[in-house]
Design a protein around this nucleic acid. Structure first.
Lengths: 340, 340
DNA sequence: CAAATTTTTTGAATCGTTTCATTGGTACGA
DNA sequence: TCGTACCAATGAAACGATTCAAAAAATTTG
C-alpha cells in the first residue's frame, strides 16, 4: 500500500483496459452497466483517486480559476470570494485564492504561480498602477477579468460598483430626510473609491439650492480616524454641527458615532444623522444601528465568474464592463428627526 | 502565438537538448554560463512558463499544501491563513485555501479536490465530529495536521491554543485588579472553546476564597447576544451588578459594553471591569478600549506548516501535539478601580 | 601529447491521464 | 447467409516536464 493506485492498476484489478476505466470516469454512458460496476468496485477497493496533474497535462488546462484580491481580511473581498467560489463550483471549477496584501511583488508571485498551474483564467483586483503587468497578462493570452476596477474595454472585461452612485444615494437620503447642512468624512481623496463617493455626494447636494456639503479630511479609513474627526465636530459646539454626516466607510462612521455619543451631548439621529458605506456586520449592531450603503458583493463575484467564462469560451475577445449600483440600507442612525 | 511554448520549443529555439533546458531551470550550476544565457534568452523570447502539471506528474507530488478552515471571514482563521501562507512560501510551497463554512459536505469536496491535486499535505480545522473522515485521510496516507483541535497523538499531529489557560488568564486578571464578584457571559457550552474558557475561569476563581463566578448563558456569539445579556445585568440595578465580566469572545463583550454605557448609569472600568477574548481589531477601538485575550494565531499557522513538513519528510509517523498559551492584552476596560 | 579526469550536454524513458482509430461482438433486415 | 449498423471495449499515442546513464567536450595531469 505504498504508492497510490493509478488508472492502470484499476484496469488490471477489474480486468479491463485503461481506456475503459477512463470512460467510466468521464463518459459513464459509453460503458455497459456490468463493466461499469466492476470498475467502480475496483476503484473503491484500491482507494483510487484521479491524478489531476496527469489529466491536466493531457487536457491542456486545469479546472481552476485564479483569484487575486487586495486583502482577504476585508469583508468586501471575503464576500466576493465566497460568491465567486460558489459560482465556480456550480460550473465545476475550483478557485485558487491569492492575497496580494496591496503588495505588487506578492501579486506578481501569484500571477506566475497561477500561470504555471495553467488556470483557466484570472480574476484580479490589481494593486496600484497596473497597466504594464496587465498588458503582460494580455500578451500571454490569459483570460482576465478585473474586479472592483474599471478597465479599458478594448483590453479587459471588468466588474465594479458605481461609487459615485453610492455617494449620491447616501447624500440624497440625508437630504430626503430633511437635513441640509451636510458633511463628508473621508480618507485621502487620492483613493479612487473615496473620491468617487465624495463626487456623488456633491452631485446630490447641488440639486438642493439651500443645501451645503463640508468636506472633512480624515487621516485614514479606521475607527480611530473617525473618532478624531468626530471629536473635532464635537468641539465646535451645537450651532456649528452639521445636520447630516456621510462617512466614506463604516469604520469611520462608527468612530464618529463613538465620539458623538460618548460625550452624551449629541443624540443620533435627533441632533445629527449619520450614514456609512459598506454595510459591514458591525453597522447593524452598533449602539445606534448605522445606515449604510451596501455593495452587491455576491453579484460582483458571481458576475466576475460569468464574464470570465465568456472569455474562456469564445476566442475572439469581446470584453464587457459591468457596473453595479449599490443599495441604500436605512437604519436608525438616519431616522427622520420629526419621527424621533 | 497560439499554443504556449513548451520546454521542447525552448530547446529548439536555443539549439540545445530538452534536458539542458530542464537543467537550467532546476540545476543552474550544472550548465555552462554560455548555454545558460542562450537558454534564458530563448525562454524570455518565447514567453515560456513552466507547465506545473507536467512537472508534478513526473515528480509525483505538487508543491502545494491544502488548508481547510471553518470560516475565512473569522479574523482568527484569516490570521492563521496569512501566517501559514508566509511560512509555506518560505519553503517554496503555496497554500490552496478551502473554506468549509462549518459544512461537512463542502469540507469533503475540498478534501477530494486537494487529493486529486496531490497536495503535499493537509492542514485542517475539521467540521464537527470527525473521526471517520479523518481516518479515511490517514488510510490514504495524506500527511495531515489538525488546526485548533486536539488529536489523538497516535494518529495525527495538531496545533491548538489552550482555552482553559486563556480563561484562567482573563479571570485571574480580573481578580488581580481587585474584583471579587465575577460573571462569565458565553454561548452554548457545547462548543468546546466556550466550555474550556469557562472551566479556566472557574479554576482561577476557586483560588480566591472570597471570589465568586456567575454564569450567564448567551444565545450566540454575537454583539446582539452580548447586548441582551448586558441589558439583563443593567436591569438588576447597581447592587447586583458583578464587579468584573469575562465574555467568551470580543463580540459578546462589545455588546455588553454597549448596553452598560448606553444607559449612562454604569461606567467601565470604574463600576464594572470587562474583558473579552480574541483581541479582534474592534477591541482596541471600542468606546472604552477592551481588554482581551490574544491567541497566537501567527505562531499557530507557522507551527502547523512546520509540523506538516516533519510529517512529509519522515515516513515513520511521529506525531506531535503543540499547544500554545494565549496572551493577556490589558486595556482601559479593566483598569484598576483605585487608579481610575 | 596522450591519458585520465572532470564538466557539460544529450535524448530516450517515464509519470498517469485522455483520446480516438480500431477491433470484436450482437442484432437486424434483406 | 450475408451485409450493415450499432455498441462496447481496446490499447497505442500524446500531453510536457524530469531523470539519468551515456556520450561528448573541456580540462588537468604526467
Amino acid at each position: 500500500m505504498n504508492r497510490t493506485a493509478s488508472i492502470k492498476d484499476v484496469a488490471t484489478h477489474a480486468g479491463v483496459a485503461v481506456g475503459t476505466v477512463s470512460n467510466v470516469l468521464n463518459y459513464p454512458d459509453r460503458v455497459s452497466d456490468r463493466t461499469k460496476e466492476r470498475v467502480l468496485r475496483a476503484i473503491d477497493q484500491l482507494g483510487f483517486v484521479r491524478n489531476d496533474a496527469a489529466r491536466q497535462l493531457r487536457i491542456g488546462h486545469s479546472r481552476t480559476i485564479g483569484l487575486i484580491v487586495l486583502d482577504v481580511g476585508n469583508p468586501f473581498f471575503t464576500s466576493v470570494v465566497r460568491a465567486a467560489e460558489d459560482a465556480a463550483a456550480l460550473q465545476g471549477s475550483a478557485v485558487l485564492l491569492g492575497d496580494s496584501g496591496h503588495n505588487a511583488s506578492r501579486e506578481a508571485n501569484y500571477i506566475d504561480l497561477f500561470q504555471e498551474q495553467r488556470v483557466q483564467g484570472l480574476l484580479i483586483s490589481p494593486v496600484g498602477d497596473v497597466t504594464d503587468r496587465l498588458d503582460l497578462l494580455r500578451e500571454r493570452g490569459v483570460p482576465t477579468v478585473l474586479v472592483d476596477r474599471l478597465a479599458d474595454e478594448s483590453k479587459f472585461s471588468s466588474v465594479a460598483v458605481d461609487d459615485d452612485a453610492g455617494g449620491y444615494l447616501a447624500a440624497r437620503h440625508l437630504l430626503d430626510t430633511g437635513r441640509r447642512r451636510l458633511a463628508f468624512v473621508g480618507g485621502p481623496t487620492s483613493i479612487r473609491q473615496v473620491a468617487d463617493r465624495l463626487q456623488g455626494a456633491q452631485r446630490a447636494v447641488k440639486e438642493e439650492p439651500d443645501a451645503s456639503l463640508e468636506v472633512l479630511e480624515a487621516e485614514g479609513q479606521t475607527v480611530l480616524a473617525g473618532r478624531s474627526a468626530g471629536n473635532m465636530l464635537v468641539a465646535r459646539g451645537r450651532a456649528e454641527l452639521p445636520e447630516g454626516i456621510f462617512c466614506a466607510n463604516d469604520l469611520l462612521a462608527l468612530g464618529v458615532m463613538q465620539s458623538l455619543t460618548m460625550t452624551h451631548t449629541f443624540r443620533i439621529p435627533e441632533d445629527v444623522a449619520l450614514i456609512g458605506y459598506d454595510d459591514i456586520d458591525f453597522a447593524a449592531s452598533a449602539v445606534v444601528p448605522l445606515s449604510s450603503v451596501r455593495q452587491p458583493t455576491q453579484l460582483l463575484g458571481r458576475t466576475a465568474i460569468e464574464l470570465l467564462s465568456e472569455e474562456v469560451e469564445s476566442q475572439n475577445p469581446v470584453h464587457r464592463s459591468v457596473v453595479f449600483t449599490p443599495e441604500l440600507v436605512v437604519r436608525q442612525s438616519t431616522a427622520a428627526p420629526d419621527a424621533g
